[in-house]
């Protein structure tokens, strides 16, 4: 007995072969409704933004590239880069400490992370700015000897220093968790293989664990950079003339509060978008492969042999 599969049932003359007809997506009334509502709302907002004179777009334009705004932007970028760099290094140290087999070391790192993640950054920043109330003098020297000098904490802990210290120490706690998460993504078998070859703890960390943890650490770090960029606005409370504070200083004089906040916001948005591009590239690069495909090698394309159902 044979069965004939009827491939192309032609609906009529001139129509396409049924096997070649495109398959169309279902469009529900809900989708059309959503489009109409969204367009109406967008048009309403746009009209309001363009016609409301209180936005003062001419003032936004005037201050957009104002010298002190640009200087503030530079300081914001500096704070982001510097505190991310210090935070990552410190976080790496904390992550290594936290995975230590020596209990007090792991506990100390755990306590640090709990403390710095459990309190608001804003509070931490103000705390470091006022640290001189706690320790008026910093004494640097060799313990139990007379050698050393005292430093006035107030002079040392200026607004920018306090900002850097506060942001870095806080970031370190978050980076420590990200890096530790990356470590735990490395398979147990890898560690056993390294152990069975007789690798020391530090060697294992450097040659086996960290290289393999990178794919999960790097994209998360990119996210932290973007977050940090916006987080720096908090240090305006310390009087650091970063982007937000620069805008605030101007509107304190001119009372153009909204236009200057828009100026700052647009700059934050531009920088975030600029950072988002490399970030999404990084995520794409690392998301699919838990195993690193070597840079130089050709892409291996897996194709199923014909006749095998997938």
């Amino acid at each position: 007995m044979t069965t004939v599969i009827n491939k192309g049932s032609k609906a009529g003359a001139g129509s396409i072969d049924a096997t070649l007809k495109p398959r169309l997506r279902l469009r529900t009334p809900a989708e059309y409704t959503a489009w109409i509502i969204a367009i109406l709302v967008a048009a309403g907002i746009l009209a309001s933004v363009l016609t409301n004179p209180n936005f003062k777009w001419d003032i936004v334009g005037k201050y957009f590239t104002h010298e002190s705004i640009l200087r503030g932007l530079m300081l914001t970028i500096f704070l982001t880069v510097a505190s991310m760099a210090m935070g990552t290094l410190l976080g790496l140290g904390l992550a290594i400490m936290r995975s230590s087999k020596i209990k007090p070391v792991a506990l100390a790192a755990g306590a640090y992370v709990t403390l710095f993640r459990g309190t608001p950054v804003l509070v931490q920043l103000i705390f470091w700015f006022n640290i001189s109330a706690l320790y008026p003098n910093l004494y640097i020297g060799i313990p139990f000897t007379d050698i050393g000098t005292a430093i006035d904490t107030n002079a040392l802990m200026g607004p920018i220093t306090a900002a850097l210290v506060g942001l870095s120490l806080n970031e370190a706690a978050y980076m420590a968790e990200i890096i530790r998460g990356g470590f735990s993504a490395v398979g147990k078998g890898q560690i056993e293989a390294a152990d069975s070859l007789g690798m020391s703890g530090a060697m294992k960390m450097r040659k086996v664990i960290i290289p393999q943890a990178m794919p999960s650490i790097i994209p998360a770090t990119g996210n932290q950079v973007i977050g940090m960029f916006k987080e720096t606005s908090l240090v305006s409370v310390l009087g650091v003339a970063e982007l937000l504070q620069s805008a605030q200083l101007i509107y304190a004089r001119t009372f153009d509060t909204i236009p200057l906040l828009i100026v700052a916001s647009i700059w934050y948005l531009i920088m975030t978008l600029l950072l988002s591009y490399p970030q999404s590239r990084l995520e794409q690069k690392y998301s699919h492969t838990s195993v690193r495909v070597p840079r130089k090698s050709k892409k291996v394309v897996l194709t199923a042999p014909e006749g095998i159902a997938r």
Binding site: G187, G189, Q190, E192, A193, A194, S196, K207, V208, P211, Q212, V291, R292
Partner: peptide, 13 residues
């Protein structure tokens, strides 16, 4: 003492 694992455990990097 050399050890060979079921899952090979080669270092992928």
């Amino acid at each position: 003492v050399g050890m060979v694992f079921q899952q090979f455990n080669l270092f992928p990097n």
